[in-house]
């Protein structure tokens, strides 16, 4: 037990470079596997939370732009969403890394972009913005006409009508699908080091450490289920958090309407 505490002390923050410099190399214990894979989850959570948070704002803008009558706003938004939704994340990472490398030669401002913490985050940010943008766009189109008419009747217009009526209703309608998008994005963070960006000094995400152990012990049946366990826990946490927000978004509605909301929309992306 105390050995395990020592392991936790040495490796719990290994993925961000704090603790032992070298990874364990033989006699791998279950404790080491659980600790290091858990340590890698720091990166998955970082990518997931940051991309989702920043992507949310771009997604709103994209949804409004795609719904706009002005082709100068609509066309770019449509293409952006199409390209990012239509291609595998795999390929997006490849091109982004390539692009950032070339930019780096032009200006040293781009130096940090080839590192996963920024470069991969940008790709995930664009990716989730495109998916969420499409979800929000669908929700925008489904806002009951009556709601908007009511807003007009109250003399609201422009920004205040959007902020107080359209936007909250859009979120409410989009929320179940958006929850699924959050889960998918969280799962997609495992691709960052797997195929996209290099891992520096063996600081990687949960999948990086899981495959490290699978490679050293030649037994995939221990590290990957540990990884799966972590992801199930975090997915449940996402579902719980988003459920609470959903309750808040729907708190003004009579209770029997609540369960039906969003069923017309894409429950998953």
């Amino acid at each position: 037990m105390s050995e395990c505490l020592q392991t936790i002390h040495d490796y719990a923050l290994r993925s961000i470079g704090i603790g032992e410099r070298l990874l364990p190399r033989d006699g791998f214990t279950l404790c080491e596997q659980v600790t290091l894979i858990g340590s890698g989850m720091i990166w998955n959570v970082y990518f997931g939370v940051m991309a989702l948070f920043t992507g949310f704002f771009l997604a709103t803008a994209l949804a409004v732009a795609k719904g706009s009558a002005n082709p100068w706003a609509r066309k770019p938004a449509e293409w952006f969403i199409f390209v990012f939704r239509g291609s595998p994340l795999f390929i997006q990472f490849f091109f982004a890394y390539f692009l950032f490398l070339s930019l780096k030669n032009v200006n040293s401002f781009f130096d940090p972009f080839t590192a996963a913490w920024l470069g991969a985050l940008i790709v995930l940010f664009f990716n989730t913005a495109a998916y969420s943008g499409e979800i929000f766009y669908g929700a925008l189109r489904s806002i009951p006409k009556g709601d908007i008419e009511a807003a007009d009747a109250y003399g609201m217009s422009g920004w205040s009508r959007f902020r107080r009526i359209i936007w909250p209703t859009m979120l409410r309608l989009a929320w179940p699908a958006y929850t699924n998008e959050a889960i998918f994005l969280f799962h997609a963070t495992t691709l960052v080091f797997f195929s996209g960006f290099p891992a520096w000094q063996q600081r990687g995400d949960a999948l990086y450490y899981a495959s490290y152990f699978a490679d050293k012990t030649f037994n995939p049946f221990v590290p990957y289920p540990i990884l799966a366990g972590y992801f199930i826990l975090f997915t449940l946490a996402i579902v719980g958090t988003f459920g609470l927000i959903n309750k808040r978004l729907n708190r003004h509605l009579p209770s029997e309407n609540r369960s039906k909301i969003g069923l017309r929309f894409n429950p998953i992306r």
Binding site: H187, S211, A214, A228, F231
Partner: peptide, 19 residues
Amino acid sequence: IAIVRGVPDIAFFLFFVIA
């Protein structure tokens, strides 16, 4: 539904086929 949806497909593929 809950378990398979909770696990990233990539992690699933890495050990499931052999199993």
